[in-house]
């Protein structure tokens, strides 16, 4: 824990370590650091890269995402609810006999069932992705770092959260330094 005093207001702001942020110049070095953290048993760490680096999932020891199953479930919901809607509207609630065809004729319902499958699947993909990533989240300790903004340009970052069970101010720093970062800093956040 560290404290600093704002002299003009006399308010004491207590701060605690939030994460270590290591900066690298290349995806290779960043991936290498991720592999080290994975092998040392860290769980709450992350890499921040300008584009998705292939192979990073394995380097970080991440499991596959279940997003596809969510999309499948919502897609089938869209298909079946579209079918039910049209059957009820045209077949039961207000039968419309058009062109001498049965009011609940199935073949002409296929296009709308298809479109609703796609629509609900797309909602599942986008909003499921945002939900699993806990976005939007405009506040995050990494943004306290003045250097972090370069992640969206050409720098590669590794962050290790203080909440990780292996987090240790000395040992974690030493581990990250062994990966030769271009810059390493301890980011602190205010105690709420």
């Amino acid at each position: 824990m560290s404290t600093e005093t704002h002299s003009n207001t006399d308010i004491t702001i207590e701060k605690r370590p939030a994460l270590f942020l290591a900066e690298f110049n290349s995806p290779e070095e960043c991936m290498h650091a991720a592999e080290k953290l994975r092998d040392a048993g860290y769980k709450k760490f992350d890499t921040h890269t300008p584009y998705p680096v292939h192979g990073m999932d394995e380097a970080m020891g991440m499991k596959d995402t279940p997003l596809g199953w969510l999309v499948l479930a919502l897609g089938m919901t869209g298909c079946l609810s579209g079918f039910a809607m049209m059957q009820w509207m045209n077949g039961i609630d207000y039968p419309l006999i058009i062109g001498g065809k049965p009011s609940d004729a199935f073949p002409s319902m296929i296009p709308v069932m298809f479109e609703l499958t796609i629509l609900l699947s797309a909602f599942a993909a986008v909003f499921g992705m945002l939900g699993m990533n806990k976005l939007p989240q405009h506040h995050h300790p990494v943004f306290y770092s003045d250097r972090f903004g370069k992640f969206s340009d050409d720098k590669f970052f590794v962050s290790v959260e203080a909440a990780d069970q292996n987090f240790n101010l000395v040992k974690t720093r030493a581990l990250l330094e062994s990966a030769h970062p271009a810059h390493l800093e301890l980011v602190e956040e205010e105690v709420a």
Binding site: D46, L67, V71, Q137, S152, F157
Partner: peptide, 23 residues
């Protein structure tokens, strides 16, 4: 949306993008 280039995000993001392309 507070995007921070996190690889844990990129993984789901890339999958969502692939699924959207497939749809």
């Amino acid at each position: 949306l507070g995007w921070r280039g996190s690889n844990r995000h990129w993984q789901v993001y890339e999958r969502a993008y692939l699924i959207l392309a497939g749809l």
